[in-house]
Structures are given as C-alpha cells and as structure tokens.
Design a protein around this nucleic acid. Structure first.
Length: 152
DNA sequence: GCCAACGTTGGC
DNA sequence: GCCAACGTTGGC
C-alpha cells in the first residue's frame, strides 16, 4: 500500500466536489504531465490512499483523504475535441494519457495549510515542500503521512 | 542534441 | 497580478 498526494484547485474541483459525486467517486482526468502520468499508470494501486490537496487558492493545503478504487485506464477526455484536456496526439491505439478513479473517504477536521506543513520539522524533505515543485501527483512517505494526520 | 521561446503551475 | 521554476516545442 502506497500513500499519495494529489493536487486539485478547489475552485474547479475541491474535496467537497468529490464528496458530492455519486458514491463519492470520480475519475481523475486531466493529468497532462508525463511524470505524474507514469506514477499514476505504473504505481497507483487499488486501495492506495491519497491526500487531497487544494492548490492555487487562498489557503493551499491538505483538505481530506481519498482512496484509489480503480487503477489506470485511458483518459478519454484527451480524445474529445470539446474537452479542455483535448490532446490531438492521443488516439484509441495510443491514448497517451491515463486516469484513475478515486473515492472520497473523509475531510480532515480542518484544512492543514501549506504554511504549517512547511514549519513542521517532521516533514522535512517532503516532495511537496521542495522548491519549484509542480507535480500534481506525488508519492508520500509513510512517516510524512502520519505526521500530517497528527496535525489535524 | 542544443537551446531559446513559450506556456503552465502555483505560492505569494 | 507577479514571478520563479519547470516542462514542452520546434528550429537549427
């Protein structure tokens, strides 16, 4: 079992939006970065748990927990010319982009702001906190997972 | 294969 | 809205 962190912009799709989905489950479409895609496609397994992170908003931080309920399959939005995630290079034979399904588990008791994560010595070295980090999906160490939940 | 130009992410 | 960091594109 692996822990992950996945970023989403709450103005577009936040933890409450996931919660509101049928069965609390939604496909994680729109990943258009190769590193993130590879991790999602090759390493994310059913049952893995995910920190749902709110990015590009007033108070960025960890908002809740979700879990992977379906492993990677082609991201069909890449083949839809009307989608903002359309990629003309994606085809049926070579879908190029993938997604997983995640299911809402719970919101944290409070949103844990990035500023607090940064000042927690237990989280030193965490990928999220590294300068210039722009990956929307990244693995989280067991110890870091525990340390974050201890901040609730 | 190099690298400049450009686009995007995301914190502040 | 600014800007640093990074990824991608495309000319050469």
């Amino acid at each position: 079992m692996q822990y992950w962190l996945m970023k989403s912009e709450p103005d577009t799709f936040g933890i409450d939006d996931l919660k509101a989905c049928p069965d609390g489950t939604e496909h994680w479409d729109g990943v258009r970065n190769y590193q993130a895609r590879n991790m999602m496609r090759d390493q994310m397994k059913k049952g893995d748990r995910v920190l749902f992170y709110h990015s590009a908003c007033k108070v960025p931080g960890v908002a809740g927990i979700a879990k992977v309920v379906k492993e990677a399959y082609p991201d069909h939005t890449a083949q839809n010319p009307d989608s903002k995630y359309y990629d003309p290079k994606a085809t049926q034979d070579n879908p190029r982009w993938f997604m997983v399904d995640v299911k809402y588990e719970r919101k944290l008791k409070r949103l844990i702001p990035l500023s607090e994560l940064k000042s927690n010595p237990a989280l030193e070295g965490m990928q999220l906190l590294k300068k210039g980090n722009r990956l929307s999906i990244m693995p989280v160490d067991d110890a870091h997972w525990q340390a974050i939940l201890a901040m609730e």
